[in-house]
């Protein structure tokens, strides 16, 4: 057999568009997923039992069900149930925002819980409310400890977005399938996109290692 990269290189613009879409889905899912995760974490830690239980259920449900099943559910089942139209793009954003928020919620929770109880008491003693304490004292410290776990999760999210190709959203994986079918060059196409994904994710992982080392040096503990 002979390697022939010409058809793949000729379709580089299509792959690039796919890469942009991959990054777009990842970015938007992060944008919605992180605040949602914070909301879920605060609900889970809330003193209201019902709120806490509902949040715990949502978190555990989205953590224990496979993302591909969630994606299919939001694409095939959700539109019928609620009579709304779901494009592959909106499905991807909705699914990955909620899915990653469940994981972010657990990172937020362990970050918040890692802060010494005395800080809550101290803030209360100087007359701060629960919300004020959370915003001014607890979260600024907790967030710093969460950064490594947060970056790791974002990288996982980037990898998980490949699943959107199964509902025909034009991400990098989908474009590769498309090119492979048109050019009859699956070996070269899939090898090239494996390399692209590798380089992209490798750079992000190395970056997160550097950040983690810096944080460790600055004497901050981290949570996972």
């Amino acid at each position: 057999m002979e390697w022939n990269f010409a058809p793949v290189l000729g379709s580089m613009d299509i792959l690039l568009l796919g890469l942009l879409n991959t990054l777009k889905v990842t970015g938007l899912a992060l944008l919605f997923g992180v605040p949602l995760g914070l909301g879920l974490a605060l609900s889970r830690l809330s003193q209201m039992r019902i709120l806490s239980m509902v949040a715990a259920f949502i978190i555990e449900f989205f953590r224990t069900t496979p993302p591909l099943v969630q994606l299919f559910w939001f694409f095939f089942a959700f539109p019928i149930l609620f009579g709304v139209n779901m494009t592959p793009f909106t499905t991807a954003i909705v699914t990955f925002s909620i899915q990653s928020s469940a994981f972010f919620a657990e990172i937020f929770r362990s970050g918040i819980q890692s802060i010494d109880k005395g800080q809550w008491e101290g803030s209360k003693a100087i007359g701060m409310t629960r919300n004020q304490t959370l915003r001014r004292v607890i979260l600024p410290q907790a967030v710093k400890r969460m950064i490594p776990a947060f970056m790791e999760r974002s990288i996982e999210l980037l990898k998980t977005t490949t699943l959107v190709s199964t509902i025909a959203y034009t991400d990098l994986m989908y474009q590769a399938n498309d090119i492979a079918q048109r050019t009859f060059r699956p070996l070269e196409v899939y090898t090239v996109i494996a390399v692209i994904y590798f380089l992209l994710i490798f750079v992000f992982s190395q970056l997160s290692i550097v950040v983690e080392r810096r944080l460790a040096k600055s004497g901050e503990g981290t949570v996972h």
Binding site: K159, P186, L187, T191, A194, F198
Partner: peptide
């Protein structure tokens, strides 16, 4: 470790299904 951790599983499965046999 670096290769198989940083390439998404779906890409690996597709690669082994469509590309590996040709190779």
């Amino acid at each position: 470790v670096e290769i198989f951790r940083n390439v998404p599983v779906l890409v690996q499965i597709i690669w082994f299904y469509y590309a590996f046999p040709i190779l």
